[in-house]
């Protein structure tokens, strides 16, 4: 599987992380990857264990039990140039500029995720994603590492 244009939303702005997660989830719903209930599971999972993974990246996804809401594997991308704070406490910042919504069946997503991980390991690369002006640019950037 690969990232497609209709799974990408650029230049979004959110005040709270929940809205960002909902937006990433809604893209998954709109593209027929998950049922709306999955979005709630994404929110819950982020409350249990933060899905912020560092380098300005968050990868909200559902809990194991929520797999039943997944219809097909999909990854959505929300670009938030101004960032949204994923940290619970004020003293440390967990700002996310790129949010990947993930719905996965049978590990079909692992190759894409692996690409994302290798690419986003360098903060300069995340910066490129955060600055991308078109969906195609995002897709091309992530393809580079493949």
């Amino acid at each position: 599987m690969e990232l497609t244009k209709n799974m990408i939303m650029l230049n979004q702005h959110y005040d709270i992380k929940e809205d960002a997660i909902r937006a990433a989830g809604k893209l998954l719903v709109d593209n027929g990857c998950v049922e709306p209930d999955y979005v709630d599971a994404m929110l819950k999972r982020n409350e249990d264990v933060s899905t912020y993974i560092g380098n300005f990246i968050a990868i909200p996804h559902g809990t194991g039990e929520a797999k039943k809401y997944i219809k097909k594997t999909g990854i959505s991308l929300i670009q938030i140039p101004k960032g949204v704070e994923f940290s619970e406490d004020k003293s440390s910042s967990k700002l996310a500029t790129i949010v990947f919504g993930i719905a996965a069946l049978n590990n079909e997503h692992l190759d894409v995720l692996s690409q994302i991980a290798l690419f986003c390991n360098k903060v300069e690369n995340v910066a490129k994603l955060a600055d991308a002006q078109t969906e195609q640019e995002v897709i091309d950037l992530l393809k580079e590492v493949a």
Partner: peptide
């Protein structure tokens, strides 16, 4: 937690 995302990365 789910073996879906973060650990794979």
């Amino acid at each position: 937690d789910a073996g879906m995302g973060s650990s794979a990365m």
